[in-house]
Simulated assay, not measured.
Amino acid sequence: MTHNTIAVLANPSAGRGRHRGLLPAVVERLGTSGLVVQLLDARTAEEAEKASHRAVAEGVAALVAVGGDGTVHQALQAVAGRDVPFGVVPAGTGNDFAAGTGVPLSPLKAAEAVAAALTNGSDHRIDLGRIEGTDGEVRWFGAVLAAGFDAIVNERANQMRWPRGPRRYDIAIALEMARLKPRVYALELDGVDRGFEGVLVAIGVCESYGGGMRILPGADPTDGLLDVVVAAPMSRFKLATLRPRLIKGTHITDPLVTTYRAREVRIHADDIVGYADGERTGPLPVTITCVPGAVRLLK
C-alpha cells in the first residue's frame, strides 16, 4: 500500500449483516477523493488489528473502519497516537463512537464526509482513552470502558454458547441481576482517593455505550478529560428502574449516582474484567489516561 491508498477495515457481519450489500457503494464514495481504495483482508478480530497495523506501517493516506464499535476499536489500536487520518463509516448495531464524535450516522454520508475531508486536507483531533494493565500492555478506546455491572454482564454473555444474538445478552442480564452484589472498588482520580463500594462504574471520552445508552451524558471527546460515573450499592429493583434512564442520561440526577472528571483514573476491584467499546480488555487493575487529540478523525 502507498500514500495514495485508503485502507478499509470492514466487518461484513456488523449490524447483524444488514449493511452487507452497502460496501461497494461505500468504496465508491470513498473513491471520489481521487485515492485508491483497498479492502483489508481480515476474518477475525486479531487479523483485523494486525491488518490495520500493517496498513498504517506501510504509510496509507487513511484508515477507514466500516462497522460498529468493535471494528472501530480494532482500527484505533493502529492509528492511536499516529499521524494517519482515521475515518468511520458506522454500520454496526452500536455506533457509539460515531455518535459521540459527530460522524454522520448514515453510512453513505459518512463515507462522503471522509472523502471530502481527505480532498480538503481537513481533520478533527479527538481524544482517546489509553488503558494500561499491570502487565504493561496498552489498549486504546474511543467511547466508554465499563467496569461494573455491565462489564460483568458482558463477561457472562461471552461465556454463554446459547442462545445467539441479542437474546443471549438479555439472559446474561437476568442471571447477573439475580447475583447482584456491591463490589469494593479502589478508585483514584488524578491522585485523589475516591474509593467506594458500588455496582456500576463507567469511564469514557464519549457519552454513550451499548448502542445509545448515555451513561456519561455531556462527555466531550475534545476536552482532554475522562468522564467517570459510579453508582452506590442498590437493590435489584432500583438498578432495573435506573437502567432505562440511561437512554436520556437522567440517571446522573439520582442521589446514588456520582460523576467526576479526571485526566487519569486508576481502578481496581477483585474478579472484574473491563470492557471498552464493548470489547474485552482484560482484568482490573488498570490505569486509564485521557490522551488529548490522539486521533485525526475525518468527518
Rank of each mutant, 00 (worst) to 15 (best):
Ala57Phe: 05
Thr71Asn: 01
Gly102Pro: 10
Ala42Lys: 05
Gly278Cys: 06
Ile247Glu: 08
Ala55Glu: 02
Met234Pro: 10
Thr241Ser: 08
Val192Arg: 14
His251Ile: 06
Arg164Trp: 03
Ser122Phe: 12
Arg20Tyr: 07
Pro292Met: 02
Lys238Met: 11
Val114Tyr: 00
Val72Leu: 03
Ala78Ile: 07
Arg161Met: 03
Val37Gln: 04
Thr281Gly: 05
Gly67Leu: 00
Val26Ala: 07
Leu105Val: 15
Thr250Asn: 05
Arg161Asn: 06
Arg280Met: 14
Phe237Gly: 11
Gly218Glu: 09
Asn11His: 00
Glu197Pro: 12
Val184Glu: 15
Leu30Ile: 13
Pro85Asn: 10
Gly218Ala: 11
Gly121Cys: 14
Leu9Trp: 00
Ala115Glu: 01
Asp41Met: 08
Ala294Trp: 02
His124Gln: 08
Glu207Gly: 08
Ile126Phe: 01
Gly21Glu: 14
Asp123Lys: 13
Gly210Thr: 07
Pro166Lys: 15
Ala98Arg: 13
Thr93Met: 12
Thr32Arg: 05
Val230Ile: 15
Met1Thr: 10
Ala80Glu: 07
Ala55Asp: 00
Arg167Met: 11
Ile215Asn: 04
Ala269Val: 06
Arg156Asp: 06
Arg16Trp: 14
Glu279His: 13
Ile173Lys: 06
Ile126Pro: 04
Gly94Ser: 02
His3Ile: 11
Asp83Pro: 11
Ser52Cys: 05
Asn11Ile: 00
Leu187Cys: 08
Asp190Arg: 03
Val153Gln: 02
Gly133Glu: 07
Arg16Asp: 13
Cys290Trp: 06
Pro221Asp: 00
Arg280His: 15
Leu76Ser: 08
Phe196Trp: 07
Val26Leu: 00
Ile152Glu: 03
Glu28Tyr: 01
Val103Met: 05
Asp41Phe: 04
Asp127Gly: 09
His53Ala: 13
Met160Glu: 03
Tyr169Phe: 15
Leu189Glu: 13
Leu30Val: 11
Ala116Met: 10
Ala62Leu: 00
Gly87Gln: 01
Arg236Leu: 04
Val64Pro: 06
Thr259Asn: 03
Ala42Thr: 01
